Amino acid sequence: MLASHPIEIGHIVVPARRAPGQAGSGDLAERMRSASIRKLESKEHVFCEGDPRIHVFQVEEGVIAIYKTLSDGRRRIIDFAYPGDLIGLGAGKEHILSAQATCRGKVRCHSAASLEALAESDAGLAIKLYRSVCQELEATRDLLVAVGQRGAVERLASFLLALRRKDAKDPDTVRLAMRRSDIADLLGLTIETVSRTLSKLRAMRVIDVEQGGTTVTLRDIPRLTELSNA
């Protein structure tokens, strides 16, 4: 499929340490540490579609929803960015996606032009960005398959496993730092279906949901993997 508009990467994870033989690739981490910090309230936007692409942002704390506004006004979340992720990278002069905090957080702000100039002169960094772009495209394709071909249980199971790989410090626990409506917008479900499906997985003794609904314990990861239709 050919794209008629510049493709903007929702978030890219760049390793902080310099790899052997890749001189200068650690400069990004050093620059990010000295970049200014912007505090965010829940639901506050980092940037919106159509805004000039002046800065690239690294998530310092919290979770950021990356989404596209459809022609009928509905929101479609593409992914969630976590601490360490870069958001706002792209080929165009304007953002074609929006980024909104799901909870209180912080981002570091770095000049987009400066980062692009650094990548042009640093082959190691450019390769890392290329690999990260490939990983991002693979994740997007997985999402398309999940939404287009899987049922609610499969979609939610896939989402919980993705959170486990991405965010959980405890391999058996994931934190839902977003609203049920955010999860619904990512998976192409309704809020009610997300809640019912979580309850169904709990009844199946695959997961436990703590009071408040923000922490999920994965009780049977092999079964959850099976349900995800992976």
Rank of each mutant, 00 (worst) to 15 (best):
R196T: 12
Q149K: 14
L125M: 08
D170Q: 08
R17Y: 15
A152P: 07
K200W: 12
A117M: 10
H5G: 13
A16N: 06
H55S: 13
P15N: 05
G10K: 04
F57G: 00
L115A: 11
I54K: 10
Q58A: 09
R155W: 03
S181L: 11
P171S: 09
Y67V: 01
A29L: 07
V46M: 01
L115I: 11
G124Q: 05
L89R: 10
S114N: 13
E136T: 10
M178R: 10
L137D: 01
D72S: 04
G151D: 06
R108K: 05
K68C: 01
R205H: 13
P6A: 09
K43M: 10
L40C: 05
E120V: 13
T140L: 13
G73F: 00
P6W: 08
D122C: 14
D79K: 00
S132K: 04
A152F: 04
I64A: 00
E226M: 10
A177E: 12
A230N: 10
P222Y: 05
T225E: 07
P15R: 04
A146L: 11
A117W: 08
R33G: 15
G10T: 06
R53V: 04
L125P: 04
V63S: 02
A99E: 09
E226Y: 09
S34I: 15
L218Q: 06
L176M: 10
R38K: 13
A230W: 09
R164K: 06
A81S: 00
V145G: 14
F80P: 04
V209K: 14
V56I: 04
L198F: 03
H95E: 00
R108C: 02
S114R: 13
V46H: 00
G148K: 03
E8P: 14
E49N: 02
S71R: 06
T140M: 13
Q22G: 12
L144K: 09
T197A: 05
A112F: 11
D142K: 14
R53K: 06
A119H: 02
E154F: 10
E30P: 11
F57S: 00
G90S: 00
E226V: 07
V14E: 04
A19H: 05
A91G: 13
G10L: 08
G62H: 01
S132V: 01
R150L: 11
I87N: 05
V194R: 04
R75T: 03
V59P: 01
A3W: 12
H11Y: 07
V59R: 01
L201P: 07
T215V: 14
H110A: 12
T140I: 11
E210K: 15
R202A: 12
G73T: 01
F80K: 03
H5P: 12
G24F: 11
D182I: 08
V153Q: 07
L227T: 02
A184Q: 02
A168R: 09
C103N: 14
V194E: 05
S34D: 15
L160N: 01
P20T: 12
P6C: 08
R108A: 05
